[in-house]
Design a protein around this nucleic acid. Structure first.
Lengths: 228, 228
DNA sequence: GAGTGGTCTAGACCACGGA
DNA sequence: CCGTGGTCTAGACCACTCG
């Protein structure tokens, strides 16, 4: 007898890994497995649903559940607030606002945020430090239209944390890439121009309007890691 | 009346985004919400569990469910087989095996794979092409001990797809970083030495032994993207 | 049309951990 | 201690899609 949906997930995974159920094969239906394992169908369903979310099996009504032939593995990355990320390394987090001014948004930025050309946005450059050493250079466009009346002194509270608390949750997208350090990035991070930097770009939206567009340039050697 | 766990998830998200339930606040218990929405508690549970998985709320027994104050957003990345990734762009996928030989594993590789120093492993370099242009340079260590008797001609079937079909599913980890192109990478990808490359590194394990360690160097401009 | 997974319900017991 | 979420059950209906 097998107890619990996690045990069932593990057992199914074992049969897949042992090639008892090879890639592309159809596995028994929920009813059959429930009978075999001595549990309710809902419990089997929970286990198989988790495996489908992880990309290990594919499920279709009427067609049944099959082991993925060419698995599109799903890796889940944690995207923490920078301060938490630094503190999780056991280092002291701090940040310095290098520049904060209203600027006309360049055409690519305006179009990406769905704003008219020439809209004036906040442009804010922040350097985040770990134990006093440069860690991430943050360059951000921020839409004043979505902000509450007064914005605070970002030297005290980081933009990101203030946004979370005052503008609310939002949808958006995130992209990762590699890019050679610009002169500005090189100067701020203390590396050579052209050095390979890991870049994170996020755009964030509230229900109706664009909130912010941010580019994080990580210091060389930065890795983003997760289990499969 | 609200129907279905997805509708409930959406409604809860709306209340969070509208700051009706601000960051850090405790939201009503499952019993209360089930009553309000006119559904069974299990349905509310399903909705809140999904939001917890996404990092939007934090749930603890006895303490209840609260809106995450500093949200660790979870981004789910699809890690497809390279051929699928290329074909998904509407391009023609092909690959060339540049080098395949048995080599003594260097110490860092052997230790990372948990093998004795001096173990002989396959070293395989493959260039993946999209519409005939370099797309990814794959450099891989492969443990002969875990392979079935004969290995095929990797010029015909890609290593990855063959591994999936013949060695089985496995666990492992994956890491993303940025790195300047080595001379070899630059030559193969047709870029300048030192150009910023997006690097994916995976290690893969079966139940008992290390299978493979692979480094993918993506052509400049490569982006990995997902919704939040 | 019929078989499969997707979801919902009403009830129950349990484990965790804050008060 | 005891309220909350975590899970399980037995049964039901539905939606999708393949044959």
């Amino acid at each position: 007898m097998i107890f619990g949906w996690e045990a069932i997930r593990t057992e199914v995974l074992r049969r897949i890994r042992s090639r008892e159920w090879p890639p592309g094969a159809i596995i028994p239906g929920e009813e059959d497995l429930a009978l075999e394992f001595g549990v309710a169908r809902a419990t089997v369903n929970r286990a198989l649903r988790e495996l489908a979310t992880a990309g290990v099996v594919e499920r279709k009504r009427r067609a049944g559940t099959r082991v993925a032939a060419l698995p599109v593995r799903k890796a889940t990355l944690d995207i923490p607030v920078i301060r938490q990320e630094i503190e999780a390394r056991g280092q002291a987090a701090s940040h310095r606002v290098l520049l904060q001014e209203l600027r006309e948004a360049p055409v690519p930025v305006a179009s990406k945020l769905g704003l008219g050309a020439g809209t004036r946005l906040w442009w804010i450059e922040t350097l985040h430090l770990a134990d006093g050493a440069p860690f991430v250079f943050e360059a951000r466009w921020l839409n004043p239209a979505v902000l509450p009346a007064a914005i605070p002194d970002f030297a005290v509270i980081s933009i990101n944390e203030w946004l979370v608390a005052n503008v609310g949750y939002a949808i958006g997208d995130i992209a990762f890439s590699a890019s050679g350090a610009s002169d500005r990035e090189a100067q701020v991070l203390g590396v050579a121009t052209g050095a390979a930097l890991f870049i994170t770009e996020r755009s964030t939206w509230s229900a109706d309007a664009a909130i912010t567009l941010v580019r994080l340039a990580h210091v060389p050697g930065y890795r983003m890691q997760t289990l499969l």
